[in-house]
Deep mutational scan, measured.
Amino acid sequence: NKFNKELGWATWEIFNLPNLNGVQVKAFIDSLRDDPSQSANLLAEAKKLNDAQA
């Protein structure tokens, strides 16, 4: 379904953000699993944090 596809894509993108540490990645992935409907918002937050830590 739509959420599974978005969840998978967001998970892959978060895993590939180079400036996040393992704890941050795990926290974002756990949040995605808790509420897949928020995948776009969580991915945006992860990208912002990644950019801030560059």
Score class of each variant (00 low, 15 high):
41 N>L: 13
52 A>L: 12
45 E>N: 03
32 L>F: 04
17 L>A: 01
16 N>R: 07
30 D>W: 05
31 S>Y: 08
32 L>D: 00
31 S>T: 05
28 F>A: 01
1 N>I: 07
47 K>S: 04
37 S>A: 07
34 D>T: 11
53 Q>D: 02
19 N>F: 15
13 E>Q: 12
26 K>E: 07
13 E>M: 12
33 R>K: 12
5 K>L: 12
15 F>T: 12
31 S>R: 15
41 N>T: 13
38 Q>G: 06
28 F>W: 02
41 N>H: 12
28 F>K: 00
17 L>S: 01
3 F>V: 09
47 K>C: 06
12 W>A: 11
16 N>Q: 12
35 D>T: 05
41 N>W: 07
48 K>E: 08
46 A>K: 00
5 K>T: 15
43 L>Q: 02
32 L>E: 00
2 K>L: 13
19 N>T: 02
42 L>P: 00
7 L>Q: 07
3 F>Q: 09
49 L>P: 01
34 D>H: 15
46 A>F: 05
48 K>A: 09
10 A>S: 05
11 T>M: 15
50 N>E: 02
3 F>D: 08
6 E>K: 05
16 N>H: 12
44 A>G: 05
21 N>S: 14
37 S>M: 07
33 R>T: 10
36 P>D: 02
37 S>D: 07
13 E>D: 03
41 N>Y: 13
17 L>N: 01
24 Q>I: 02
6 E>S: 06
33 R>V: 10
6 E>A: 05
18 P>A: 06
9 W>L: 13
33 R>G: 04
4 N>Y: 10
4 N>P: 04
50 N>K: 01
26 K>M: 13
48 K>Q: 10
3 F>L: 12
14 I>L: 13
40 A>Q: 11
54 A>Y: 08
53 Q>I: 10
24 Q>H: 03
28 F>N: 00
42 L>T: 09
39 S>W: 15
40 A>C: 08
6 E>N: 11
9 W>K: 10
15 F>Q: 15
27 A>Q: 13
43 L>V: 15
42 L>E: 00
39 S>G: 03
15 F>I: 15
8 G>N: 13
35 D>W: 05
21 N>G: 06
46 A>G: 01
18 P>Y: 03
46 A>L: 03
14 I>C: 04
48 K>L: 10
52 A>D: 08
25 V>W: 03
2 K>R: 11
23 V>F: 14
44 A>S: 09
29 I>H: 02
3 F>I: 11
51 D>T: 08
28 F>H: 00
29 I>S: 02
25 V>I: 13
39 S>L: 11
44 A>N: 09
17 L>D: 00
16 N>G: 06
35 D>G: 02
5 K>E: 14
25 V>K: 15
5 K>H: 14
17 L>E: 00
42 L>W: 03
34 D>K: 14
11 T>S: 10
14 I>Y: 03
4 N>T: 08
42 L>A: 05
16 N>Y: 07
18 P>R: 05
21 N>A: 07
15 F>P: 02
10 A>V: 15
30 D>V: 09
32 L>W: 05
12 W>S: 09
53 Q>L: 08
34 D>F: 11
16 N>V: 04
41 N>M: 12
34 D>C: 04
16 N>E: 03
5 K>C: 13
39 S>T: 14
25 V>N: 00
38 Q>H: 06
46 A>N: 00
53 Q>F: 08
16 N>W: 05
23 V>Q: 04
22 G>I: 13
2 K>A: 14
53 Q>S: 04
38 Q>P: 01
38 Q>Y: 03
10 A>M: 10
46 A>C: 03
14 I>M: 06
6 E>L: 14
2 K>C: 12
45 E>I: 11
8 G>D: 13
38 Q>I: 05
30 D>H: 08
44 A>Q: 09
17 L>T: 00
40 A>E: 11
9 W>E: 08
14 I>A: 03
35 D>P: 01
22 G>R: 12
19 N>E: 03
31 S>E: 09
1 N>S: 05
1 N>L: 11
13 E>K: 10
51 D>Y: 08
37 S>I: 04
13 E>S: 06
36 P>K: 02
2 K>H: 14
27 A>Y: 14
44 A>M: 11
50 N>M: 01
23 V>H: 13
33 R>Y: 14
25 V>A: 06
16 N>K: 11
30 D>Q: 14
10 A>L: 03
14 I>W: 03
1 N>G: 11
23 V>I: 14
35 D>S: 09
19 N>S: 04
6 E>Y: 11
5 K>P: 13
14 I>G: 02
51 D>S: 10
50 N>T: 01
46 A>Q: 01
51 D>W: 08
3 F>G: 08
53 Q>G: 04
54 A>M: 09
18 P>S: 08
45 E>K: 08
44 A>F: 10
21 N>M: 07
14 I>F: 06
18 P>L: 05
19 N>G: 04
42 L>F: 05
19 N>L: 03
3 F>Y: 14
47 K>F: 07
54 A>V: 06
42 L>Q: 02
17 L>G: 00
28 F>V: 01
8 G>H: 15
53 Q>T: 05
39 S>A: 12
9 W>R: 07
33 R>C: 10
15 F>Y: 14
34 D>I: 13
52 A>H: 08
11 T>H: 06
14 I>S: 02
43 L>E: 02
21 N>E: 08
36 P>M: 05
26 K>W: 11
23 V>Y: 14
9 W>C: 09
9 W>N: 06
11 T>K: 10
4 N>C: 10
10 A>C: 04
26 K>C: 07
5 K>M: 10
30 D>C: 09
15 F>N: 11
50 N>L: 01
31 S>C: 04
52 A>W: 09
28 F>L: 06
48 K>I: 12
7 L>D: 08
54 A>L: 07
35 D>Y: 10
6 E>T: 05
7 L>K: 03
48 K>C: 05
34 D>E: 14
9 W>Q: 15
1 N>R: 02
40 A>I: 11
17 L>R: 00
30 D>P: 00
6 E>D: 12
1 N>P: 09
52 A>R: 12
29 I>L: 14
36 P>S: 04
37 S>P: 01
14 I>H: 01
14 I>V: 06
19 N>A: 07
1 N>T: 06
11 T>N: 08
45 E>H: 06
43 L>G: 00
7 L>G: 03
40 A>R: 11
5 K>A: 14
51 D>Q: 08
47 K>A: 04
39 S>I: 15
18 P>M: 05
22 G>P: 15
21 N>Y: 05
46 A>P: 01
6 E>G: 06
15 F>R: 11
7 L>P: 08
30 D>Y: 04
27 A>N: 13
37 S>F: 07
33 R>I: 13
24 Q>L: 02
34 D>N: 15
25 V>E: 01
52 A>N: 08
2 K>F: 13
52 A>V: 10
30 D>K: 13
32 L>I: 12
43 L>P: 00
36 P>W: 06
34 D>L: 13
46 A>I: 03
28 F>P: 00
41 N>R: 13
21 N>I: 04
43 L>S: 02
5 K>R: 07
2 K>W: 14
34 D>Q: 14
27 A>E: 12
21 N>K: 06
36 P>N: 03
22 G>C: 10
38 Q>W: 03
32 L>M: 12
28 F>G: 00
9 W>Y: 13
5 K>Y: 13
18 P>C: 10
42 L>G: 01
50 N>Y: 03
1 N>Y: 03
53 Q>H: 05
8 G>V: 13
28 F>M: 02
42 L>C: 06
13 E>A: 11
24 Q>G: 03
18 P>G: 07
8 G>S: 14
46 A>M: 07
2 K>T: 13
51 D>A: 13
7 L>I: 15
1 N>Q: 09
25 V>M: 05
24 Q>S: 01
5 K>S: 15
4 N>G: 09
22 G>S: 12
